[in-house]
């Protein structure tokens, strides 16, 4: 399978500080849904900025679909990678929702007669078609993030990186954004690689693969269900075990594998029969 992203021997440090990443390697396969988790300051967001070329590595290489990131290839690489940031208010430029999506298309010099159709289509995909004429500031946080996602989708990226995109949202907004991600993944399957940076374990659970970053090192690289049973290790990394895993480990006996909340409740209910 093709690698969407290949990072080799990456070394990076902020000026006047110890290197955050030292000889760091990571491969993300095309079509994968990857979660990157780690405590604040672990280097997660820095890694996203390095992949986008917003920061330049001190040494080592980053390749996007086999093409190494350099000053010359930066524009081309960025065209394949879309990013949604944490704060929905920092990423709006348009006076209306539709204008905002159009902004990226204009930058790509998409002919203006083609735009309305494309805008309509991506807003439909994120469930925001009815809001096309609204001013972005009148939307809720979850709606704003879905519009940000639509603006990214309009540019047809092969990779979308979400950097703690649900951290500022209320529960309803958060579940709407996560549902949208699931829908997009279903629709595009292997055509879309998702990289979700988060410290919310429920969000990480949606991924095929979770990598835990700690002080610029890859501390874990596993399926979510294999990571979640390792309570002590997660705690040492400053992360929480999901509620259901904590409960299962606090019981005298429990199945020796990760169970979702529903599965755990179903198993417990059999004990009362």
């Amino acid at each position: 399978m093709t690698n969407a992203i290949t990072i080799n021997n990456l070394t990076y440090g902020y000026p006047d500080q110890d290197p955050l990443f030292h000889d760091f390697d990571l491969e993300v396969q095309e079509g994968q849904w990857l979660s990157i988790v780690g405590h604040n300051g672990s280097g997660k967001s820095t890694l996203a900025k390095l992949i986008l070329g917003l920061l330049e590595a001190n040494s080592g290489t980053i390749s996007i679909f086999g093409q190494q990131l350099t000053i010359e290839t930066l524009a081309e690489a960025r065209a394949q990678v879309g990013m949604v940031f944490q704060n929905p208010d920092n990423q709006f430029v348009g006076a209306t929702v539709a204008d905002d999506v159009a902004f990226g298309l204009e930058n790509r010099q998409v002919p203006s007669e083609e735009m309305p159709k494309m805008i309509e289509a991506v807003l439909q995909q994120v469930g925001m078609a009815d809001f096309a004429d609204r001013e972005p500031h009148t939307l809720s946080g979850g709606q704003k993030q879905r519009v940000a996602l639509a603006s990214v989708l309009a540019l047809k990226p092969k990779v979308i990186i979400l950097d703690e995109a649900t951290a500022m949202l209320d529960p309803a907004g958060k579940s709407a954004v996560l549902q949208t991600l699931k829908d997009l993944k279903n629709q595009y399957q292997d055509q879309l690689t998702l990289i979700v940076i988060t410290h919310d374990m429920a969000e990480a659970a949606l991924a095929d693969r979770v990598v835990v970053i700690n002080d610029g090192q890859l501390a874990f690289d596993q399926r979510p269900q294999d990571l979640f049973v390792q309570g002590q290790a997660l705690k040492e990394l400053g992360l929480d075990q999901p509620f259901e895993s904590q409960l299962s480990q606090a019981l005298p006996k429990a199945p020796n594998q990760y169970l979702t909340k529903q599965e755990l409740a179903a198993w417990l209910s059999t004990l009362k029969d």
Binding site: L247, L251, N256
Partner: peptide, 27 residues
């Protein structure tokens, strides 16, 4: 979670709980 686990604990006869094969996987 601890409070919840304690309250569940005393409602089940744990000696009678056996693990089905498909769910056991060692230590």
């Amino acid at each position: 979670v601890t409070d919840l686990a304690e309250q569940i604990k005393c409602q089940v006869d744990w000696d009678r709980v056996t693990m089905p094969n498909s769910l056991t996987g060692g230590d």
